[in-house]
Structures are given as structure tokens and as C-alpha cells.
């Protein structure tokens, strides 16, 4: 199925993605277009279906219905070709953490069929930029949460993909590492790459993204450029309104 619109290609296109777990419907038919060169934020409260959606988009979780395509290639019909263009940082997925940082990068690069010399050079550069060189031969299992996110990001970037899919890249990351990750991603987008990431930190999304989609109860509730969705208001206000949260009136919890 060709989902590319004439004249403008989508880095990621989702059509009618649907996933049902034994006890509940996680994603109820999602359509989403991520234009090339966009910095896309996927917002949603806990349990909204962000991870499920992204997992189906990158080929980790088989959808019950629907199509996901990366730069025009169907992820589920031609996984090899699609995955070549894709860099993924899965949420809370353990990496092969009994390897050291350099070993993990070498492993990822060689598995992707890259030339060993290129792997060596890029790994050294990534470790240096991400301030992981000092960790030396420390195994990833002994890394801190922030270091783990950074090495995960390095693995996703190693083969210079055209699309980065990041699940909660800023969760449990200290401010210094978060700023570093932000810088790298901004530079990547400026260089023509596309990023889609999930988050529930409004400030990060507002500061970085060109496009936003708000996901709740497995469906997209608001989508468009940041300005469209925001409509001149703070993003947080729009978000709480869209997902139907409540604000404390002052009557309840009076005993506090």
C-alpha cells in the first residue's frame, strides 16, 4: 500500500493501527502522518497507548489491523528495508546490558552490517559526545538511568537513520543529560532527520517540537503543528482539557 501523499513524503505514516490485548483495547485505530524533517511529540497520559503505538510502528508488536510505513516502506511487509531506515530507542527495554558501552555499540553496528572501521570511528565519536567514554569497560547494567538512555540513543543513532523513534527519551534522565540529548536531537533534525518521541513532559515538547499529537485512551484527540494544537494557550492547559482531566476546586481534600 502506498501511503505517500503526492509531493510530500512522510517519514512515518500510520493508517488504522489497532491493537487489542486480552483484557482491553490498547489502540483503537490510529492515523498519523509524520512529515520528513519534523520534530514530532507524542503526548498522552499514562496508559494512553503511546508505547503500544510506537511499538507497532517500528515492528516490535504486531498490530491486529492497520499499516505502518517508514519512508514509504511497509514495516510489517518489508521489515528488513524499513528497519534499515529506522533508529529506535524502546522504552524501559533492557539493552544487552552485560556488555560495556563500546561493546554494545560495536554489537549494534555489526548486526546492522556496517563496516567495522566505520563502527569503530562512529562509536568513539558518539561515546565522546555523550560523555560515556569515562565509563570505559563498565557494563551497561551498572550504568545510571541517564547513562543508559544515552547509550540507547547512541545505538539508535549509530547507523545514521533517517527516522528516529524514541519512547520516553527524557524519562528518569538528569537535567544535564537531558540538555545534551535535546541538543543532539535538535542538530539531527536540523540536518534533515525526522524525530518522533513520546513524553509527558510538556516543557520539553513545547520547547522542541514542530508537531504534536495528543493521545488518550488509544485514540488521537488532537493533532497538528504545535501552533495549531496550542492555539495561543499554554500546551499544558490544552492537554489537560483534551484528555479530560480535572483541576482541584479547593473543596475536596480540605483535611490536608
Amino acid at each position: 500500500m502506498n501511503v505517500t501523499e503526492p509531493g510530500r513524503q512522510n517519514a512515518l505514516a500510520l493508517r488504522g493501527l489497532y491493537k487489542r490485548f486480552p483484557t482491553r483495547i490498547a489502540v483503537t485505530g490510529i492515523d498519523l502522518d509524520v512529515p520528513v524533517g519534523s520534530f514530532y511529540g507524542l503526548l498522552g497520559p499514562n496508559g494512553a497507548g503511546k508505547t503500544t503505538t510506537l511499538s507497532m510502528a517500528v515492528g516490535l508488536l504486531r498490530p491486529d489491523a492497520g499499516v505502518a510505513s517508514v519512508l514509504g516502506v511497509d514495516v510489517w511487509r518489508d521489515p528488513v528495508e524499513a528497519k534499515r531506515r529506522l533508529g529506535v530507542l524502546p522504552d524501559n527495554a533492557r539493552l544487552f546490558d552485560r556488555l560495556s558501552g563500546p561493546e554494545l555499540l560495536a554489537y549494534t553496528g555489526l548486526l546492522r552490517g556496517m563496516d567495522p572501521a566505520t563502527v569503530d570511528q562512529r562509536a568513539a565519536e558518539l561515546l565522546d559526545v555523550l560523555a560515556l567514554t569515562e565509563a570505559g569497560r563498565t557494563l551497561v547494567v551498572d550504568y545510571s538511568a541517564g547513562m543508559r538512555k544515552k547509550i540507547g540513543l547512541a545505538c539508535a543513532l549509530l547507523h545514521a537513520p533517517r527516522l528516529l523513534v524514541l519512547d520516553e527519551p527524557f524519562e528518569a534522565v538528569d537535567p544535564v543529560s537531558a540538555a545534551l540529548i535535546r541538543d543532539i536531537l535538535t542538530r539531527y533534525v536540523a540536518g534533515g532527520g525526522t524525530v518522533i518521541f513520546s513524553s509527558h513532559v510538556m516543557a520539553v515538547v513545547e520547547g522542541l517540537c514542530s508537531h504534536v499529537a495528543i493521545l488518550d485512551e488509544g485514540a488521537i484527540k488532537a493533532v497538528g503543528t504545535l501552533e495549531d494544537v496550542r492555539g495561543g494557550r499554554p500546551l499544558e492547559e490544552v492537554f489537560v482539557e483534551v484528555v479530560g482531566g480535572r483541576t482541584a476546586t479547593g473543596e475536596e481534600l480540605s483535611w490536608l
Binding site: 556488555l99 560495556s100 563500546p102 561493546e103 560495536a106 563502527v119 565509563a135 569497560r137 563498565t138 551498572d142
Partner: peptide
């Protein structure tokens, strides 16, 4: 408790050679 990270020496060889 989180495992103690012992300082390990930084290797000079390439990543692939380490793997």
C-alpha cells in the same frame, strides 16, 4: 543497592576489537 561502579580503565582499541 545499585552496584558500585568501579573505575575501569578506558581502552584505546576500537569498539569492534573490544566486542
Amino acid at each position: 543497592a545499585a552496584g558500585t561502579t568501579t573505575p575501569t580503565r578506558v581502552s584505546r582499541q576500537g569498539a569492534c576489537a573490544e566486542l
